[in-house]
């Protein structure tokens, strides 16, 4: 697994490619924070990529831009050779719906919905009926070991359980890519091991996985680990 600067695999396998990505935040007009700077990576289809680095090094920013949740200040992102940074918001939302599943650092579950409703929420605008939504959510939650927590609200669940609900939600649309931001930072070691194992299994079935983490145990199952520092890949 050939690591430095993240060029992996042959060119025809490349799923996502970034070109000189920059993101800076301007505060009080003069003071500029560079969250990431000049990042070019290639991500092959079905690979397991880990972004590692200290707090504030730009991991979240980079994954958000790759996952189309945010737009870069400069640079481009290509998916299957198409420049998605120039897509309209509508096209980006469709892309997220069809291809990308997110697992967020702080879960981002909707507080007033039960676990199964949270998991099935992305299916509502697709016109899926109640039974279909419930069955699919139940199936995934059972896989995550939460078969007995279908009707619980997020505040009635532990951090690890919430994280597993969030993972189930990320999988509901059968995404090609899973983007996980610190999926194990808020949960205990045992659950972390489960999550790592689960992501590994998904990857084995061909899902491309991008993880931002402090957790060094991920490096063992990753195809490539990028070390980040001060907004750059080192």
């Amino acid at each position: 697994m050939e690591g430095i600067n993240g060029v992996t695999g042959s060119v025809d396998e490349i799923m996502i490619r970034t070109e000189n990505l920059c993101k800076s935040y301007r505060q009080h007009s003069q003071y500029e924070v560079r969250a990431i700077y000049d990042i070019s990576v290639n991500i092959s289809k079905s690979s397991f990529m880990v972004f590692n680095g200290p707090s504030g090094s730009g991991k979240t920013t980079l994954l958000n831009i790759i996952g189309t949740l945010d737009r870069p200040t400069a640079g481009k992102v290509f998916m299957y050779g198409e420049e998605i940074t120039s897509f309209s918001d509508i096209a980006l939302a469709r892309l997220r719906r069809e291809k990308i599943g997110f697992i967020f650092q702080d879960f981002h579950l909707i507080p007033r919905l039960t676990s199964w409703e949270n998991v099935a929420y992305p299916l509502i605008p697709l016109g899926a009926g109640f039974t279909e939504r419930f069955e699919r959510a139940k199936f995934l939650l059972e896989k995550m070991g939460l078969g007995d927590r279908l009707e619980h609200a997020p505040e009635e669940l532990s951090g690890g359980q919430q994280q597993r609900v969030a993972i189930a939600r990320a999988l509901i649309n059968n995404p090609e890519i899973i983007i996980a931001d610190e999926p194990t930072s808020n949960i205990d070691d045992e659950t972390s091991a489960h999550v790592r194992q689960f992501l590994g299994e998904l990857n084995a079935r061909g899902v491309t996985i991008l993880v931002a983490t402090h957790d060094t145990l991920f490096e063992k199952i990753a195809d490539v680990t990028f070390k980040m520092k001060n907004g750059r890949i080192v």
Partner: peptide
């Protein structure tokens, strides 16, 4: 926040 989550999980603005 809810709307942000909806958008992130593929809901269209419309």
């Amino acid at each position: 926040k809810e709307i942000g989550i909806m958008k992130a999980t593929g809901w269209q603005t419309l």
